[in-house]
C-alpha cells in the first residue's frame, strides 16, 4: 500500500541513486521562496502558546497539588 506508493515516487525522482528502498537523500526542494518580510511565523506562535498552556497547567498541578498538597515528611 503506502510502501509501494513511496518507492514508486522515489523511482521517478531519485530511485537510481539509492541502493535501499528509501526516501530521496534530499527532500529540501521547495515550491516557492519566502523572504523575511513575506514570512509571518504564526504557526510557531500557536505551537508555543499551546506549549505554554501545558507548561502552566502542569506547574500549577506540581506546586499546588503534589508539593503543597502532600503533608510533611518527618524523618526519625
Amino acid at each position: 500500500m503506502n510502501e509501494g506508493m513511496v518507492s514508486a515516487d522515489d523511482g521517478a525522482t531519485h530511485g537510481d541513486l539509492e541502493r535501499s528502498v528509501s526516501a530521496p537523500p534530499d527532500q529540501a526542494d521547495v515550491d516557492r521562496t519566502l523572504s523575511h518580510e513575506e514570512f509571518d511565523p504564526k504557526g510557531t506562535l500557536a505551537l508555543i502558546l499551546v506549549y505554554f498552556a501545558i507548561l502552566v497547567g502542569m506547574w500549577v498541578f506540581m506546586y499546588f497539588v503534589e508539593f503543597l498538597g502532600n503533608g510533611l515528611t518527618v524523618v526519625g
Partner: peptide, 15 residues
C-alpha cells in the same frame, strides 16, 4: 496536494 511527488503525505509522515 501539489504536483510535487516529494510533498505527498508519506508513510513516513503517517508513522
Amino acid at each position: 496536494m501539489t504536483g510535487n511527488p516529494l510533498r505527498i503525505e508519506t508513510s513516513g509522515g503517517v508513522l
